[in-house]
């Protein structure tokens, strides 16, 4: 149950102010979607939550303690690209996290420990819909399958905070709807708080409990450099969507069901002969 408190956060690169006076409290088990135009600093904000970059001013507190200054296993991440290791098979990609945590020198497990881990990994792969793809390399998987794999790889570490950087931005609409259903289910079933950066409004409202918009209040060219983006809208969904509980949003989608074909539009009657119109 991970809460985040962000107080008066600033990020500057030299004279350029990217983010200014961002203050935000994120409740445990929230699913926060960050939206905003490109270049408004939402990815920079996510990187600061990850520990990959440090704020220029301000503090980030996670569960009462200041955020560590580098990335760690308590915060998982899925990017739009490069989230899985191309040199490992799907199963190895899911196993590598626990393997590296257990064996600090060899980074590999053998024998019984390996067998147990492989079983867990295969179960999780099944859960994200990748059963049968265990021995495939990422290059042999479609974009949607790679993102499912990335989610499984991250969830193996049981992160307290899951950070998503436009994870589904490169996928086709159909594939995206399927993976949204999966994402909702994973958020319900795994005890984590999620922060997702997206440029897709529909996606934000389809998944999140709270949608936060970043934007620059000052847009004139001579102001853009010295005034950063900040929170311009903070919308809690109503009626609320609650982790692990069925709400109005899930009423028509039973938990664990991601088969969306029922909602497909039925083919209409055949069209009249087009040739006659020509």
């Amino acid at each position: 149950m991970t809460a985040l408190t962000i107080q008066n956060l600033w990020k500057e690169y030299g004279p350029q102010v990217v983010l200014e006076s961002v203050s935000l409290t994120i409740a445990p088990r929230a699913f926060v979607a960050l939206v905003g135009p490109s270049g408004c600093g939402k990815t920079t904000f996510l990187r600061m939550l990850l520990g990959q970059e440090q704020p220029t001013r301000g503090t980030i507190v996670m569960d009462g303690a200041p955020l560590p200054r580098e990335p760690g296993p308590d915060r998982g991440v899925v990017y739009q690209r490069y989230s899985v290791f191309p040199h490992l098979t799907a199963l190895q990609n899911v196993m590598i996290g626990p393997e590296m945590r257990a064996a600090r020198l060899a980074g590999r497990l053998w024998g019984k420990a390996r067998k147990g881990l492989a079983d867990d990994a295969a179960t999780l792969l099944h859960e994200v819909g990748l059963a049968g793809a265990e021995d495939k390399f990422p290059a042999q998987l479609s974009g949607g399958m790679q993102q499912r794999l990335a989610l499984a790889q991250t969830l193996m570490m049981r992160p307290k905070l899951l950070l998503l950087d436009e994870p589904f931005g490169a996928l086709d609409p159909g594939i995206r709807a399927e993976i949204h259903a999966l994402m909702r289910r994973l958020w319900h079933e795994h005890p984590m708080t999620v922060v997702m950066v997206t440029h897709d409004m529909r996606e934000a409202f389809a998944l999140a409990t709270r949608v936060i918009a970043f934007d620059r209040p000052r847009q004139r060219p001579e102001e853009r450099e010295r005034y950063g983006a900040t929170i311009t809208n903070d919308i809690a969904l109503w009626p609320p969507r609650v982790a692990g509980r069925q709400t109005i949003y899930d009423a028509d989608i039973p938990a664990g069901d991601e088969d969306l074909s029922r909602f497909a539009i039925q083919p209409g009657p055949p069209r009249p002969d087009q040739g006659a119109l020509r």
Binding site: P71, R75, Y79, S83, G97, M100, L105
Partner: peptide, 15 residues
């Protein structure tokens, strides 16, 4: 991204 990803998977510099 791969290096950061490995860090979130508990890797040390050596790993």
């Amino acid at each position: 991204e791969q290096i950061v990803k490995a860090e979130t998977l508990s890797a040390s510099s050596w790993l």
